[in-house]
Design a protein around this nucleic acid. Sequence first.
DNA 1: GCCGTATTGGATCGGTCGCGCAAAAACTCG
DNA 2: CGAGTTTTTGCGCGACCGATCCAATACGGC
Lengths: 192, 192
Amino acid sequence: MGRPRKFDETRALTAVMHTFWQRGYEATSTRDLAESTGMGLSSLSNAFGDKRQLYLRALRRYYETNTAVQTELLRRPGPVKDRVRALMTQAIDIDLANPPSSGCLIMNASMEMANTDPEVAQEVRRHFTTVEEAVRSALAEGQDSGEITRDQDAGTLAHHVLSAYYGLRVLARVRPDRTALTNVVETLLAKL
Amino acid sequence: MGRPRKFDETRALTAVMHTFWQRGYEATSTRDLAESTGMGLSSLSNAFGDKRQLYLRALRRYYETNTAVQTELLRRPGPVKDRVRALMTQAIDIDLANPPSSGCLIMNASMEMANTDPEVAQEVRRHFTTVEEAVRSALAEGQDSGEITRDQDAGTLAHHVLSAYYGLRVLARVRPDRTALTNVVETLLAKL
DNA sequence: GCCGTATTGGATCGGTCGCGCAAAAACTCG
DNA sequence: CGAGTTTTTGCGCGACCGATCCAATACGGC
C-alpha cells in the first residue's frame, strides 16, 4: 500500500554509483545525485538515507557489478595466466576508455575516505579481500596444474599479482599508454 | 618595504601540504588551512592566491621534499636491489606510521583531482616521471653491472617496478600488514 | 616624524551545502 | 467512496563554503 515508487531502485543506485565514481564523495552534492537519478532530494533521502548511506550503497552496488566481473574472469576455465591477463586487460580497457573513466571506485574510495570513515574502510576491505581470494585461488589452481611457479606459496604470489594489478591502475590514471601498460602485464605474467 | 611578514613561507606551505595530505582537496576548507598555518584567511590568499593555487603549491612542496627523498634513495651507492628495497621499505614505513599517514599525496591527488584539473594532472605526471626516471636509471646501472636481469630493457623493467611500488602503497592503505607487504617487496626483487 | 607600502585581523558577501518539514498525490484496503 | 499509508513535490532552514573588502598595523625611506 501507499503511493507507488516512480523510480527503479537498482537503476537509481547505479546512477548514484556513477556520479560518486566520477566526482568522488566530497565533490558530489546531494543535488548532483538528485539530478543524475531524476529523483527529488526528499525521495532520495526517504528511500536510502543521507548522503553517506547513499555512498555506502553505491559501494555495495559496485561490488555486485564490477567486482563480480573481476572474480568471474578469474574463475573461468582455461589457462590461469590467460585469466590473470584478462583481469588486467579489462582494467586497462576501463581505465583507458573514451571518455576517460575514473579508474576503480574502490581505489578512489580507499584514497579519499578509508582513513576517516570506518564503515567505508570496511566496505573497501571487503572488495579487496574478495579479489585477493579469487586471485589466490586461481594461482593455487595454476600451481596444481604446473602452469604457475611454486617458488612462493599462492598467498604470497597473490599479493604480488595484486600489487602489480593495482599499481597498473594507478599508472593508467597518470599515463594512459596502452603499450606500456600491456608490457607491464606481460612482464608480470612471464615471471609467474 | 611594507609591514613585515609574520610567517615563514616554507613552514606555511608545509602546514598546508600536510592538511591537504590528510584530508584531501575537497574536504579541506580555507579555514582549515588558516588554522593549520596560524595565518589569517587574507594573509593566505594575499601570499599564495586562492585554494586551488595553494593546493598546487602544496604539491610542489611535496615534490621538493618527499619525492626528492625517493629519488635520492635510488641514487645512493651500493647494490641496486638494496636501493629499490630502500624505496619500498620507506614507503611501507610511511604508510604504516603511527598515527596512520594518508599514503602518498601524489597518489591521492591523482585519484581525486587529476581527471578534472589539468594543472594538477600535469603536476602529478611530473612526480611520476621523475620517480620513473630514477628507477629506470638505477635499473640500467644494475643491468650494466650484472645485478639486474636483462630479460627486458630498463624502461620496461622500470614500469614493472613502478606498478609493484604503487600497488604496494594501495595495499598498504587497505591492509596495513607489514609482513605481507615486505613479502611483496622480496618477491619482486627476487625476480629482477 | 611623516609617508608610502605591504601585511594583518576581522567582518561580511553571495552562494551552496546537507537535511528536514508540510502538503499534495497516488496507491490499497475496508 | 473514504481511511490509512507511502512517496513525491516544493520550499526553506541553519551552517558552512570560498573569496573579498576594509581599517588597523608595522615596517623602510626620506
